[in-house]
Design a protein around this nucleic acid. Structure first.
Ligand SMILES: NC(=O)c1ccc[n+]([C@@H]2O[C@H](COP(=O)([O-])OP(=O)(O)OC[C@H]3O[C@@H](n4cnc5c(N)ncnc54)[C@H](O)[C@@H]3O)[C@@H](O)[C@H]2O)c1
Ligand SMILES: NC(=O)c1ccc[n+]([C@@H]2O[C@H](COP(=O)([O-])OP(=O)(O)OC[C@H]3O[C@@H](n4cnc5c(N)ncnc54)[C@H](O)[C@@H]3O)[C@@H](O)[C@H]2O)c1
Lengths: 216, 216
DNA sequence: CATTTAACGTTAAAATATTCACATTTTTCA
DNA sequence: TGAAAAATGTGAATATTTTAACGTTAAATG
């Protein structure tokens, strides 16, 4: 009767960031037919200690068994449920440039339950163009589509200066979370979480790692 | 005479991940003509406490001054230098699919010093096709180009199952760091750092944040 | 010119995250 | 069947990260 899988206290962000790694690994192993995996093997595969793995998995409503480890399929299912990703989630992409179009055509999203159901742009010249199965729509149709199709996530893939404006539109349209692919810092109310994907920043992180090199 | 900006001990990863944010902010403000900024203003703009900001900046060889804060331009320059991003860095992209092509055409990379000087694919049908200013080359020319042009960073944008193989090739070709855009976990020797950009994982992080909603 | 104030750099306290260590559970096998 | 082994879940110890506190310094003000 009760949902029962809800945690009293949220899982620490640092743990949440690792859960998708466990999920992906177990999905892959399940496909390969592997039945069991130990925390040590997971750690090995992902560069973590077995202890961190066990500690992390203690937040997931699923139990391993002594001497065997975790059921690969069972763990994958539990992780997916814990992440709230065990269902189809409607997504819209705003910005039909190179990045937006790449995202729309990316197959893996759907395999993981993310269904992109609209791509929007402010440029009238792009309106009506096909991208994968979709046609680009004008940004002013955004609210209508989001409300009508109960879209949960909006992806911002416009030039950085337009990012906040787009975020605001997504928010008033009722989106529940935002994936921000631009380098802009986007602000949103507490109840609309924003996750950033910052590719340039990742490259800069890499230049630092290269610079300090061995000494690390 | 001495480089002098080298730290005895590497900057903690958690700090390094924030430095690009400070860099981007100060670059933008510098362009807007702002001269000074305080740690409190930086924190405000980025959702951090002023204390965290000052603590972070203590790792950067640059000093603010009482009552004024930090020189915006000076801080930007110092951050860029600390990150090792204050110079042109040659990059190659492997995988000329949607993502690889989007990356090659992305203008911001060059503005930040990352010069993409080659795009490679294993598909002979793609060889010779234009992407921006570049032409797609066959993967077997990779080593030659990397050695010849002293390429520092390789970006992996191929299907996940091919990621490790591509990484291995990049490594033997002498690349000094890898940006991995696939969902695969890539292993590399200690002296070749790997930074991951995991978009699907970011979406899953978002579904969790949506699920736990207000209670956070 | 002395005083007030804003903001820094830094030390230390508090909060988080990771790792260790081990009692417990399940399986194996002699 | 009972001892040995492998792996879990968890409490405690470490280590790291974040935040608070504060002495110091440079500018502003009267
Ligand atoms: N291309 C990449 O590989 C890449 C990599 C990292 C980050 N990004 C970021 O992703 C974003 C998009 O990049 P891109 O390469 O696709 O750029 P792009 O210039 O190719 O496309 C941007 C699109 O956004 C549209 N647009 C502008 N303002 C808009 C608004 N207010 N509402 C709706 N649409 C609007 C434009 O008409 C254009 O079609 C940028 O912020 C970029 O920094 C791109
Ligand atoms: N498109 C996106 O928006 C997106 C988003 C997130 C992650 N990714 C990841 O980026 C990677 C590429 O995605 P994509 O959409 O560009 O895929 P894609 O299928 O459009 O392109 C992949 C390209 O890689 C080439 N390739 C395959 N094996 C190769 C090898 N061994 N050496 C060199 N080239 C090889 C293929 O010929 C193809 O051209 C994938 O791992 C994908 O999961 C893509």
């Amino acid at each position: 009767m009760t949902g029962a899988d809800e945690e009293r206290t949220p899982i620490p962000a640092t743990v949440v960031r690792r859960l998708p790694k466990y999920l992906l690994l177990t999905q892959r192993l399940a496909k390969d037919g592997q039945e069991w995996i130990s925390s040590a093997e997971i750690g090995e595969a992902l560069g973590l200690t077995s202890s961190t793995v066990r500690q992390d998995l203690s937040h997931v409503d699923f139990y391993g068994i002594s001497k065997r480890g975790y059921s690969v399929r069972g763990l994958a299912a539990a992780l997916s449920e814990t992440l709230g990703a065990n269902r189809e989630i409607a997504v819209v992409v705003v910005g039909a440039g190179n990045m937006g179009r790449a995202l729309v055509q990316h197959k893996e999203f759907l395999r993981q339950g993310f269904k992109i159901c609209g791509i929007f742009d402010s440029d009238p010249a792009l309106a009506g163009e096909s991208v994968g199965d979709l046609k680009v729509r004008l940004i002013r149709e955004l609210t209508e589509v989001i409300c009508g199709q109960d879209v949960e996530i909006g992806v911002i893939a416009v030039p950085a200066p337009a990012a906040q404006e787009v975020a605001d539109r997504l928010i008033v349209s009722g989106v529940r979370g935002i994936l921000n692919v631009t380098s802009a810092h986007v602000v949103a109310p507490r109840h609309v979480p924003v996750v950033d994907v910052r590719i340039v920043a990742s490259l800069q992180e890499l230049t630092y790692a290269i610079k300090v090199g061995g000494r690390r």
